[in-house]
Design a protein around this nucleic acid. Structure first.
Lengths: 225, 225
DNA sequence: GCAGCAACGGGATTTTATCCCGGAGGCAGA
DNA sequence: TCTGCCTCCGGGATAAAATCCCGTTGCTGC
């Protein structure tokens, strides 16, 4: 490797930052030149250090990593940003790429994954954690500016309206509430739900929620806190 | 230092574990001999490796770090456990020490704090993160058994039968199935459910599932695979 | 124009939930 | 022992929701 890539670490947990630093210290290709614990700090450091890479946590105390990413990308077009998150919800991933992130890795991954991602991203290529559905990744690549659609064996069979209804059901909204939200009759919502369940071969509300969780339509981790 | 202290790391984020490992590798006093990502795994490794120290994350996918700590302390009286958490809530800290933890550090702390804690704990002394109020520490020592049952405000109100029914509901079983399983009338199951919802102030099946997920009655992570 | 599909919703029926009721049995205290 | 209290159990009446089958509208492609 010609020269080390400079890295800025942004995460609100100092311990995690230290860990990452130690980890990257063991790899000759990267050099951690700075770290930040808040979004504000991240922006200042990024502007000052102009790093090649930024490892960005999604959740920061003062603002979302999404916003920070957007800001940094606006300032430094050469700097590549790698998103690190606890969540694998499709919305987050989509958003991250839309604001200019080049990589996305979940914290559940092994460290090799992180290194791999950094190497890929430093070459300017996109990287999406392989533990995320391949379909998701594919769509993200293809869609470009558009919002990524989720495809699944069954989910693709649903019409857009049905997908919309399904999200609301999965989020736990009652039939009536969904009807109000969409300005349609509760009866229609029920019909949509029936169709959804037939197409996906589901037989209860709970199965639907699990299915949605598997696809990343909803983030069940949020329930735990 | 006479010889290295063996350390077992328990955290559900591989990246965080790697980071800790790298961090501790830079200190001659400790040697990471194993790691675990779940409570179950932690117990097995602890029994197998009999480490001097355990660095334990509070939140694990399958069960609480509190439970794991209790179990390990029951098995290995020589092993000291250091709690690592994102939360500085008094409840957690209290509980951690009550089940046999010897140290408590929040993830917001710097890495020096962690090392300091490990050194202190390995000598068998108690360590509480200085960023936590002194009052907290004081209260901890005094309170003893008093605040023992923190489990949950509402869940304790349920009778054992109701708790049993609640589990089954949370697992997604239909009313009818639950009735069959418990050899009672569907009507009775419905009555139990009504009582449960009243006592816990829940208003839909989904809320119940979320509540159950929060308490750890069910493992929503299993849905994702 | 017509076939096909999506979105919408009605009517009749069945299933489920809700609210209120009471009985059997265990258990603690007077 | 008797009395009150609570749990567990289930019934009956009623309200709500789901289910099944039906038709209308409107758009699209041939």
């Amino acid at each position: 490797m010609s020269k080390k890539k400079t890295v800025l670490i942004v995460d609100d947990h100092p311990l995690f930052r230290e860990g990452l630093k130690s980890l990257l210290a063991g790899h000759s290709g990267f050099e951690v030149v700075g770290e930040a614990g808040t979004g504000r700090e991240a922006l200042l450091k990024a502007e000052e250090l102009r790093p090649d890479l930024v490892v960005m946590d999604l959740s920061l105390p003062d603002q979302s990593g999404i916003d920070v990413t957007r800001s940094i990308r606006g300032l430094l077009s050469e700097t590549r940003i790698m998103m690190l998150s606890m969540h694998s919800k499709i919305d987050y991933i989509t958003e991250a790429f839309q604001v200019g992130a080049t990589g996305y890795v979940v914290k559940e991954s092994a460290s090799e994954r992180l290194i791999e991602c950094l190497e890929t991203v430093s070459r300017g290529e996109y990287f999406i954690d392989a533990s995320l559905s391949h379909q998701v990744a594919k769509n993200l690549m293809e869609s470009g500016e558009k919002a990524a659609k989720i495809t699944d064996a069954g989910y693709g069979l649903l019409t857009s309206r049905e997908q919309q209804v399904m999200r609301l059901i999965a989020e736990g909204l009652a039939t009536k509430k969904i009807a109000e939200k969409l300005f349609i009759s509760p009866k229609t919502v029920e019909n949509h739900r029936t169709n959804i369940m037939n197409k996906l071969d589901l037989h209860s509300a709970m199965e639907l929620v699990r299915y949605a969780a598997k696809l990343g339509l909803i983030d069940v981790d949020l329930w735990k806190s």
